[in-house]
C-alpha cells in the first residue's frame, strides 16, 4: 500500500495525535486525488458506523434463559477456586464502588450497633420509622425498568418505574419500614431480573429467584 494511503487509514483508525492529524490533512489538502480517496473512504466508514442498529427480538433473553443447561456446580466450583481464590483480596479493593451498598448493609449494621452502645440511648429509636433505600441496576439497553416487590404489591407500572442515569444505571429510592422484602426488577414490562447485588435470594416457587433486602430495626 502506498505511503499516503497508509496515512489515510491511520487517520481513519483514529490512532493519530492532533499534530499528526493536522500534518496528514495538510498533505491531503494539497493533493486532490488523495482528497477524493479520503472522502470516499470516510464516506464508506461513516455509512458503516451510522448503519442502523437492529433491535433485538423481544423474547431473546427468555429464550436464552430457557435453553440454559442445568449446572452441576461442585466440580466447576473447584476449577473456579483454582483460578480465582488468590485474587479475592484484590477484587475487594477494586470493587469497592460496586459493592458499596453491600458494604453499607453490613457495616451500617455494625456502625449502628456500636452507636447504640456508645450513646446508650433508645429515645430516637422508633419502630415505625422508615429508611430510604436506593435500588440500582445496570441495563443500558432497556427502554424502561421498574421495581416490583412485596412492598408495592408487585405492581409494575406507575410510581415504581426507575429513572435512567446517563451511565446506563437505573435507579429508584423507596422508603421502607424495618422488615424483610422480596423484590425483582422488571425490564420493558416483561423480563424479570434478579438484583445482582442483592444481599441474598429466595425462590418464589414459580421458578424465579427474588432478591431479598432486610431492613432491620436497631
Amino acid at each position: 500500500m502506498d505511503k499516503n494511503m497508509e496515512l489515510i487509514h491511520k487517520l481513519l483508525d483514529g490512532e493519530v495525535s492532533e499534530e499528526e492529524k493536522k500534518e496528514i490533512l495538510d498533505r491531503i489538502d494539497s493533493d486532490p486525488v488523495l482528497k477524493m480517496e479520503l472522502d470516499a473512504l470516510s464516506m464508506a466508514v461513516h455509512i458503516v458506523e451510522k448503519s442502523e442498529r437492529l433491535s433485538v427480538p423481544p423474547s431473546f433473553t427468555s429464550k436464552v434463559m430457557g435453553k440454559l443447561p442445568v449446572r452441576k456446580s461442585s466440580y466447576r466450583e473447584k476449577v473456579w477456586d483454582f483460578f480465582f481464590k488468590d485474587r479475592v483480596l484484590r477484587w475487594n479493593m477494586v470493587t469497592a464502588a460496586a459493592t458499596v451498598c453491600l458494604v453499607i448493609i453490613v457495616f451500617t449494621g455494625v456502625f449502628q450497633f456500636q452507636k447504640k452502645h456508645s450513646l446508650i440511648s433508645h429515645t430516637n429509636i422508633s419502630e415505625g420509622s422508615t429508611v430510604t433505600v436506593k435500588f440500582n441496576i445496570y441495563v443500558p439497553d432497556a427502554k424502561e425498568v421498574a421495581i416490583a416487590g412485596d412492598f408495592n404489591k408487585w405492581k409494575v407500572d406507575g410510581k415504581n418505574m426507575m429513572k435512567k442515569q446517563d451511565n446506563g444505571i437505573w435507579t429508584i429510592e423507596i422508603p421502607l419500614k424495618p422488615g424483610a422484602y422480596n423484590y425483582m426488577f422488571v425490564m420493558d414490562g416483561k423480563v424479570w431480573l434478579s438484583d445482582p447485588n442483592a444481599e441474598s435470594y429466595q425462590d418464589d416457587g414459580f421458578g424465579y429467584k427474588n432478591s431479598v433486602l432486610k431492613v432491620t430495626k436497631l
Partner: peptide
C-alpha cells in the same frame, strides 16, 4: 446521607451506588 436520613434504621441499597 442514609445515616442522617434513616436515623435509627439503616439505609442500604442495591446495585452500584455511584459511578
Amino acid at each position: 446521607g442514609s445515616d442522617s436520613k434513616s436515623g435509627p434504621g439503616w439505609g442500604g441499597g442495591s446495585g452500584m451506588q455511584r459511578r
